[in-house]
Design a protein around this nucleic acid. Structure first.
Lengths: 156, 156
DNA sequence: ACAAAAATCATCCTAAAGTATGACCGAAAT
DNA sequence: ATTTCGGTCATACTTTAGGATGATTTTTGT
């Protein structure tokens, strides 16, 4: 019941306004009959009232201009499905092909011995490689090398 | 000259409209004086004219209503600045708060001694922690622990 | 209040990592 | 043809990491 009132409050308001207007006009008409010379005032009232009505109608009935705002929603992809090596950073370090190979295996958590076995070379060779890698990357430990390499996107 | 006309065309239009309106009113007044009973028609005309004026005024003088539509545009970013830990995987391993702390510092490439200094504990403590970490994660080396932790999204 | 878990530290020992240095070889550049 | 560079390997040594074990102190859950 209350909800119905609220929903149609515009219509009700409009009806009440019209009723009041008619009463006003009737009263003015009566005054007009009594005092023959109030035509200008009468017209003035009419003008004001209907101008107001026009304004009100215009405001109510115009379709609002639509403004579209595009909000950029950032979606973070936590993995790296399309990993591409950062060539420029890789070049800066000047790591050789073999050194990069060793670095990648390091990043997978392999020990020097495991890397040596996988690449069919001696442990000493891997030690030499890793030393050169650390030197070129200016780090002290393999863990730092891996961390830096991942940060620079040199390895996945 | 033409430009001036175009620039002030609204003002000119308004002036002309007003002039026409006055003429119309004068003519209606004349008619009203002649035929005493055309009051309702007269009022009707006035009403229509001024309602139109009101509408026109409202449209011209009010700032246009704007309806804002927000559209979300998805942007994919390949890194993970807003890292959220994978709680389920973290729970599975059963690492304690302190152990996770050590693991994170490990992942940053710090040595056990550096971790000990940073956490104001002894080197032996860190060794114990790291041993427990490797045990819980079923790995043999810190590099493997870091690799696994990153893969499971336990650390950034 | 009490037991369990977490955190701390120690010692002894082994394994792995890292440093320094020198050497050899082959391919590519000059 | 000679130099340069990348890759290989070795020896000797130091440092760091890791394993095993035991102990003490906090913290925490019931």
């Amino acid at each position: 019941m209350i909800k119905l009132l609220i929903k149609n409050k515009l219509i009700i308001l409009y009806g009440v306004s019209l009723a009041l207007l008619i009463f006003l006009l009737k009263w003015l008409e009566w005054r007009f009959l009594i005092m023959d010379h109030a035509v200008e005032i009468y017209i003035g009232f009419i003008a004001i009232i209907f101008t107001s009505l026009g304004v009100w109608l215009a405001l109510k009935l115009t379709t609002p201009k639509v403004e579209t705002i595009i909000v950029e929603k950032k979606i973070f992809i936590n993995q790296e499905p399309d990993f591409t090596i950062n060539q420029s950073e890789s070049d800066k370090l000047g790591l050789s092909k073999r050194e990069l190979e060793v670095l990648q295996l390091m990043a997978q958590g392999l020990s020097n011995q495991e890397i040596a076995s996988r690449l069919y070379v001696s442990l000493n060779t891997i030690k030499t490689h890793s030393s050169r890698i650390f030197e070129k990357m200016s780090v002290k430990r393999r863990t730092q090398a891996v961390e830096l390499a991942k940060r620079l996107q040199i390895i996945p």
